[in-house]
Write a protein that binds this DNA or RNA. Structure first.
Lengths: 240, 240
DNA sequence: CGCTAATGTGTGGAAAGTACATATTCCTGT
DNA sequence: ACAGGAATATGTACTTTCCACACATTAGCG
């Protein structure tokens, strides 16, 4: 938009520059049965028959880009105040067989056991992230990119709590971290590390209906949950 | 693109979904006179008279998204194998006064003293990043976002060397880091920290023409410089 | 040849990270 | 009722990283 800005203005009604559609794709993560899940839909394109794809949609002409993923979430899951984060924009010419579509990828963390989650479409279902080998379009790349960003962020920012019920035990939390990171963690060190962050409040309650010694229950300290709108980027702290 | 994918295909020729233009904006950083600079152009929109803006352009219909910033760099500076990194996509409805434009922001690191740099347009010039208060469009936000990403990345990844000549002293390197981070650093700790990363090769040469004791010259170890194409996202390493 | 200004280097303390073992509690089965 | 099983809860020593801090060395300049 600079030197060519003038050109752009003149061409703003020129068909050439409106041959690109803009979409968003949502990597909607949840956590169930000790596994990280992602919400996928059966592809209805014949090019991708039998494959699944992420949930996405074209951005409406009168819709802010970052409103689009919230709308997709709302339409697909009924959820409103979800945690959502922009990750990357993918725009290779041939990434979509039906035309030129540039897509911005977001990931979202939701608690799929919440009452509010309503998945109506029969073609939409949760899949184990670890088991996914192929997806339609470039969605496997998008998924991998989002998972990586989640992994990089998860130890420094209290975001995974969006995947859990309000009350949880440290064991549940650790299982969740292990699912996301794909590695095992030492229980004592994990406890220390999490506790040092001052994210949790001890509820003075115990697990119930577990076939062993129950653990304490915790909840996220209030004021830490970011959702409903895009989280602000984090302050840096660097020193040598 | 899912449930609405069918709709999308049908509408792929429908005007409604092609009312959005896609652009890229480049935050082109360089380093001169002990200050971090950014390349800006005088805005030629009357809405933004007297303001500067980033260098950008609309994405061509037959151009991969990530090729666009390379093209902008090439057109504006003559540089080809630059370091470039996608940062964020901005898409509020009213961010551009002339129409709906979604823009993907990239930052770039170039050595402005290189022979290859050719800035021909008189309206294009280097500005001190620290002095910038306002820019046209949402470009101040884009600049801030890119600067923040640069700051977060700079200690972990050997990217700032794209801003320096091939040979440099540790003092120059430290000055550069201080300019980017906006803070002072302890010389001994800086040296240790950088040396521990095994990024540098001691050239066994000394600075010349300095009005004091000359420092040793170093260069970046070969194999570390990523440029010419988008850098691969970094491996994570997490353990508890 | 001494003054100035910058380079080059090491150490000790604090904080964070990591490996590792034992006692406790609750449930279950007999 | 009680023993056994299974998971919880917890502490310590070691290592690594981070950080604050001071002094001797070198080249240019007058």
């Amino acid at each position: 938009m600079q030197k060519l800005k003038t050109a752009a203005i003149e061409k703003i009604s020129h068909q050439d520059y409106f041959n690109i559609a803009v979409s968003v794709d949502c990597v909607i993560f949840s956590y169930q049965d000790k596994a990280l899940k992602v919400l996928l839909i059966k592809s209805d394109l014949e090019e991708f028959q039998g494959l699944y794809s992420l949930l996405g949609d074209l951005v409406e002409p009168e819709e802010d880009l970052e409103d689009a993923p919230y709308r997709v979430l709302q339409e697909r899951t009924g959820m409103q105040d979800v945690y959502l984060e922009q990750v990357h924009t993918f725009g290779n010419i041939n990434r979509h067989p039906s035309g030129r579509v540039v897509t911005t990828a977001y990931f979202s963390l939701i608690n799929c056991k919440s009452d509010k989650v309503q998945i109506t479409d029969n073609d939409v279902a949760w899949h184990n992230v670890a088991d996914i080998r192929r997806l339609a379009f470039d969605h496997k790349l998008i998924l991998d990119t989002c998972l990586q960003q989640l992994q990089e962020k998860v130890m420094e920012h209290p975001i995974v709590f969006n995947l859990l019920a309000e009350k949880f035990s440290l064991r549940e939390l650790q299982d969740l971290y292990e699912s996301i990171l794909g590695i095992g963690l030492d229980r004592r060190n994990f406890r220390k590390r999490i506790m040092a962050k001052d994210w949790l409040v001890d509820l003075n309650q115990m697990e119930e209906d577990v076939p062993h010694r129950p653990g304490k229950l915790y909840k996220l300290r209030s004021g830490l949950k970011k959702s409903g709108r895009l989280a602000i980027r984090v302050e840096q702290k660097i020193a040598v």
